[in-house]
Computed example of a mutant assay.
Amino acid sequence: MNSSTASVAPATRLRLTVRGRRVVASIAALPVVAAVGFAVISGGGALASGDAGAPVGTFETVTVMSGDSLWAIAEQVAPQADPRDVVDAIIRLNALGSGQLDAGQTLAIPAEYAAS
């Protein structure tokens, strides 16, 4: 038997019944449903939670002036500390999505850095 006479299986198209399409759609939607369920159960994020926030006395506030950056504020409020640590603490405490600041904005400074 040579290769020119070998029989080739006919190519078939995958056919799904209505029930099969529903099963495939359900399986594809499962990760989305799980993610939404997890988000609802966990309560969203820190901003959407029912927490009252940081306790009084654990932070002080500063007002952002024109041209201020998080780095400059960190060096000003805690000159002896590593500015990277101070910037990170300010970002976490204020739940900042980015380092973008606006003049007049009030920032909470962790008391451990503000007291120094």
Rank of each mutant, 00 (worst) to 15 (best):
A34E: 02
R13E: 15
T63I: 12
V64H: 00
S49Y: 02
V40M: 08
G43D: 07
A28H: 09
A35T: 01
T63V: 14
V8F: 03
T17E: 06
L14Q: 11
V36S: 03
S26I: 05
A28R: 10
R13A: 15
R22P: 00
I41M: 03
A25L: 14
S49H: 02
A46K: 02
I27W: 05
R15I: 09
P31Y: 03
T5A: 05
V32E: 07
S3D: 15
P55H: 11
T5G: 03
A6Y: 07
A46D: 07
V36A: 10
G53W: 14
S7T: 14
A34Q: 03
P55W: 05
V32Q: 06
G45R: 06
F59L: 07
A46Y: 05
V56C: 07
G53A: 13
A25W: 13
I27A: 14
N2I: 06
T12V: 02
A29C: 06
V18Q: 15
L30Q: 13
P10S: 06
D51F: 04
D51P: 00
A54W: 12
G57Q: 07
F59V: 01
G20S: 12
E60W: 03
G50E: 13
F59E: 00
S7N: 04
G37Q: 01
S7Y: 08
T12G: 00
P31I: 08
I27T: 14
S26T: 13
G53F: 11
V24D: 03
P31G: 04
P31Q: 05
A11W: 03
F38H: 06
S49W: 05
V36M: 07
